[in-house]
Structures are given as C-alpha cells and as structure tokens.
C-alpha cells in the first residue's frame, strides 16, 4: 500500500517531471526539413544543453536535494546528466508519435556523424526501455533515482544522498507491484535498466570524441 506521504512525494516528482520539458519550439526543429550532418550535430548539441537545463530544474524540485552540500549537488548532476538524458530520450522512442516522427528522429540521430558502434547500444537501450511500457510515474521516479545515486564521483556525503534516494526506491517498488501485479520481476527489471544506463554513460565520453572527430 502506498501511504499518503508517498503519494505526495510521487506527485511532486511527476508534476516536476512533466513541467520541466524541452521547449516545443526546440523539439519542433528536429522534425523540420532535411539538414546536413553538421546541422544535425549542432541541433542535437543544442538539445543536449537544453536537456541539462531542464534536468537541473527538475532536480531542484526533488525534496531535500537543495539541502545537500552544494558541491555534492553538482557532483550528482554531473555524474547523472548523461544517464538522465538517455532516459528522457528513450521516452521519445517508447511513445507512439504521429506521422512517423519517431522514424524522422531516429534518421536524424543516425545521420549526425556518430559512429555506428555507439549508435547500436544506444538504440538497443531505447528499445529495451520501450519494451517495459513504463507509466509516467515510473519514468519520473526512475529519473530521480538515477540522479540520486550516492556513489557518483566526488560525492562527499553519500549517506545524505542515500537518505533521499531510499524513499524514492520504496515508492517505485510499491508502484511496480500495483501497476504490474502479474509481473513480479518488473521492479528488478527497471533497476536492471539502470545498470545498462551506467554502461552507456561509461562509453559516452568515447562517443563524443568519435562524434567530434567525424
């Protein structure tokens, strides 16, 4: 059973997640006419900057986050930004969009100069997230849990971060049982995706280097 306090926590997270999204005028640009590889690169990097700003705004609303040590706040955001961005992007590929928009986006990313060896695991991740059919609450909580990972580099007070992450994990676990009563492994599967995310994060620096070189 989800307690009233847990419901309130979930509402704060979901409302913030929905409120802080990339502005539509930016996302619309992705669906416009043909671009060159260079323009795709510029557009995607502009979106990445936007995504980080949106991510920070979302994170500020996580109860207790702003009371953490300021440098720890930065360490958490720095350590999780890439993973949170992949999670958010995965949502685009797991939602049915009109008029083949998903295909247009995939094509644009594939033609942005990034190496195939990095592209394949990324799209595989998007598909594996898509196959889970997460509800909005799960998506928002999973993002918050990713950000509040205590063992990111340079985090000094890991226990303080754990104290914020644990209630989120507890709500998510309960939500999974309620939402997917026939899938007892669902919560474990969600956490498994976080491990996959860490792998993507690990290769991200190499990915960027190859992208710049190309």
């Amino acid at each position: 059973e989800i307690t009233k306090e847990q419901q309130a926590l979930m509402k704060v997270i979901v409302d913030a997640y929905n409120k802080h999204q990339i502005p539509q005028d930016v996302t619309k640009k992705l669906l416009q006419e043909q671009y060159s590889v260079e323009e795709n690169f510029l557009l995607l990097t502009e979106m990445a900057t936007n995504q980080v700003q949106v991510l920070v705004e979302f994170t500020k609303t996580i109860p207790g986050f702003l009371s953490l040590d300021h440098e720890d706040q930065i360490a958490l955001l720095k350590g999780s930004a890439v993973e949170a961005m992949f999670l958010r992007s995965a949502q685009v590929f797991s939602t049915k969009m009109p008029n083949g928009h998903t295909e247009v986006l995939e094509e644009r990313i594939r033609k942005s100069g990034m190496s195939e060896e990095f592209m394949t695991p990324m799209f595989n991740f998007y598909k594996s997230i898509g196959s889970l059919h997460m509800v909005q609450e799960e998506q928002a909580l999973l993002t918050a849990i990713t950000i509040l990972t205590p063992d990111r580099p340079y985090v000094k007070d890991q226990q303080a971060v754990e104290r914020l992450q644990e209630p989120m994990l507890d709500v998510l676990r309960k939500l999974c049982v309620l939402q997917h009563p026939k899938k007892p492994q669902y919560f474990a599967q969600l956490l498994g995706r976080l491990t996959e995310l860490r792998t993507l994060n690990h290769y991200h620096a190499e990915m960027l280097t190859s992208w710049r070189m190309n």
């Binding site: 690169f41 510029l42 990097t45 900057t49 980080v52 700003q53 920070v56 705004e57 500020k60 300021h70 706040q73 930065i74 955001l77 720095k78 930004a81």
Partner: peptide, 21 residues
C-alpha cells in the same frame, strides 16, 4: 561547438537560475 561550454558550467549556471549567460 562554436561556443562550447562544459557540462559543469551549464549545471552551475542552471543551479543558480542563470540560463542564457
């Protein structure tokens, strides 16, 4: 690219509520 600023700089500015510097 062009006006490349690092991830940390974007985060610090966003935490202070400064977006368009």
């Amino acid at each position: 690219p062009g006006n490349s600023i690092g991830l940390e700089a974007i985060i610090r500015k966003a935490l202070m509520g400064k977006y368009h510097d």
